[in-house]
Design a protein around this nucleic acid. Structure first.
Lengths: 110, 110
DNA sequence: CCCCGTACCTTGACAGTCTAGGCATCGACT
DNA sequence: AGTCGATGCCTAGACTGTCAAGGTACGGGG
């Protein structure tokens, strides 16, 4: 399978995280693990991208955080979607879809 | 239809240009016009992104340029794909496909 | 004469990703 | 006891490519 170049995630990391949180509150580390598992390690979520993204989205009011205890008994910051975050998810998903359709029309045969 | 956020093109502009050139040599301005027409103005190719991209790809040996005369009788720089460019197009198209599949699997219902 | 379209290019700001670190805790293994 | 890896959070700095906004030049039409 093709190796994905660096920076490919640009512009889609946020929406992926938002989507992950629709399954319920999760802490950052778990979000990254879940995304990597779900994509069969095709995507790797670097921590240097993950935590800034979570911070940005909390500033923007898309997610909220609360300290709690992880499944393994560690301190962990749990994030959950806000109403604004859910709306943002819808918007960005639609954008993603539209963008992919257009690019695919150019790139793919048919 | 959803307005596409800025910077969405990041990482895909190059491959879109390469694909455009498979229909034959074109000058930069024509590449941009063709992409915008083909996508029904969903994508707008900024000249500040277009020309640097063409420059980069020529440096990397993916395209070659030659000055000529446009359909309207103006001086214009015509670009054509090299063998390396054709290979690069295949690689990046496959990457794009893989990336879209993975992200869609996460984002879309089903 | 002036403006718009064509055609190319450059500069600077900016955002988001990456690499590469650091910190702390815990369990497992030596 | 000591070490190591995994868990869990964070930061600093480099980098890359996009954007906005400019500039140059030429030609045709009003």
């Amino acid at each position: 399978m093709p190796m994905l170049s660096k920076d490919r995630l640009r512009g889609t990391l946020d929406v992926l995280i938002l989507k992950t949180l629709t399954w319920g509150p999760r802490h950052g580390y778990a979000v990254a693990r879940w995304l990597e598992e779900t994509t069969g390690d095709t995507l790797t979520i670097e921590e240097g991208s993950l935590y800034p993204s979570l911070y940005r989205m909390e500033q923007r009011g898309w997610i909220e955080s609360e300290w709690g205890t992880s499944e393994l008994g560690r301190q962990a910051k749990f994030y959950k979607l806000t109403a604004a975050g859910r709306k943002q998810l819808r918007v960005e998903t639609a954008e993603w879809q539209a963008f992919v359709d257009v690019v695919s029309r150019v790139l793919l045969p048919g």
